[in-house]
Amino acid sequence: MSAAIETQDLVRTFRVRRSKQSPSGAPVVALDGVTLEVQRGEIFGLLGPNGAGKTTLIKILVTLLLPTAGRAVVEGFDVRTQAQQVRERISMVSGGEHSGYGLLTVREQLWMFSQFYGIPTGEALSRIDRLLQVVGLFEERHRKVQQLSTGMRQKMNLVRGLVSDPRVLFFDEPTVGLDVGAARDIRAYIRTWIADRSDRTILLTTHYMSEAEELCDRVAIIHKGKIIACDSPAQLKRAASGGAYFVLNTERLDGADFLRRIPGVSRVDSAERDGHTELRLQLAEDGAIAGVVTALTQQGRRILQLQKVEPTLEDAFVTLVGQRLEEADQEAGGA
């Protein structure tokens, strides 16, 4: 096995005008010493909240941005000095992309992009038709791009990324803003594509735990420009399982703070669900659940359901970052 993507101490800073992120006008550090190795044949995920530096990393790898320091190599070529060779081997699809020209039909638009990769027309069109069939867009091939729904549009973008038959594919939040069905289709196709091609590589950024968990062979958790963990989803979860996890349904609670003070309770997340409260508890060990049950009973709240659960990637994230993903997003200023 050899690495398809390698980065070493990658740093990228942006000079900015005074802003919320940088009240002093000091440079924003988007990547702060990122070292990664993605193997050929892998689907590698970059998971992190808004502003973590995911897009910045992808842009460096696809030669749209130069690193401030450090080195990045894609398929053996340096993104800084061998951009041309890198470009011949990659493509990128981003979420919420509005590329192309609304007046063209789906097929025309895809043909146009294929021409920038030097694919002869006949070959390009047969590839496009085949791919459109696979993603379920064949019926729409003669529709104008401006008439597509967001989901269809993203499927078309996916085909655009695939039509040049790249060695390495970059997806930047490919399912952002899509409905569940469209997102599932896209994920399913990403998986089949790589399953048939063991020498290809996918690097995907996401914001969705389930997406990372479902798709990725390995996941790097990135936060504030730093990689804070990098492993398979299973290993990450295991690493996080310092303790026991329970889901507990109870009658509506006004606040969960009193639970956090109970010895042995490391973390409580509460959510309202049709009139009752669902608590997700991280405990130091199984026994601590007794204290929680007692405290709830003292408050006069009935326990509707109690279940011991396996830690999720979200739990791993919380353990590593000290915050849930949404909280980190909010800190970064929301979407």
Partner: peptide, 8 residues
């Protein structure tokens, strides 16, 4: 960006 990334 897509144009810039293309090898042409």
């Amino acid at each position: 960006e897509l144009y810039m990334m293309a090898p042409c």
